[in-house]
């Protein structure tokens, strides 16, 4: 779908005979509209009113685009937060740390999904992804504040893994 969207944008530029980045973005937007209107045809879903609502999430291109955008905003906000938390720890007069290394069972299975999840964990407050077990089922992370390992485990699974799993298997 994303490839189709880019092809639409290129076709748009060719038909307009205008090759500036602005035209490319315009092409992307109009291509996106075309895909929304014709998505049931493009994915060979049966043409019925019902299929508008029962469309599976992973093939729903508009929803995926929205989720990726939300994910990027969420990721960037987490990074800003992580830096502020870090600054506060570094500048506090007394370092009172309770670091720990915590194992987290993974539900996410794809390599790219695990990569994105561990990158996200490293860039977010208080945690660094340390390693993934050889069978890709456990993620080890180092936390600055590991006073409550279970809360950290729960938070990581619900906040981060769920978000990544919505995008990748």
């Amino acid at each position: 779908m994303i490839i189709l969207n880019i092809l639409f944008a290129i076709a748009w530029m060719a038909l307009n005979n205008a090759y500036t980045p602005v035209d490319f973005v315009a092409g992307l937007l109009f291509g996106f509209l075309v895909i929304i209107v014709s998505r049931r045809v493009l994915t060979r879903e049966p043409l019925s009113l019902q299929s508008w609502f029962t469309f599976s999430a992973r093939r729903n291109y508009p929803l995926l685009v929205w989720r990726w955008a939300a994910f990027i905003v969420f990721g960037f906000w987490s990074i800003v937060k992580a830096n502020i938390v870090m600054a506060r720890i570094v500048l506090s007069p007394q370092l009172r740390l309770q670091p720990g290394i915590i194992a987290i069972p993974l539900d996410i299975t794809s390599e790219i999904g695990i990569t994105i999840l561990s990158n996200l964990i490293t860039l977010t407050p208080g945690t660094v992804a340390l390693d993934v077990s050889s069978d890709r089922k456990t993620l080890y992370l180092h936390a600055m504040d590991a006073r409550d390992p279970d809360a950290l485990r729960r938070e990581t699974k619900q906040e981060f893994e769920r978000r990544v799993m919505e995008l990748l298997p």
């Binding site: 990074i79 800003v80 992580a82 830096n83 870090m86 600054a87 860039l123 660094v128 180092h142 600055m144």
Partner: peptide, 13 residues
Amino acid sequence: YTRVHASGKSATL
């Protein structure tokens, strides 16, 4: 391990 937090995170922003 704690220093990696500092270099890996604050440096990004």
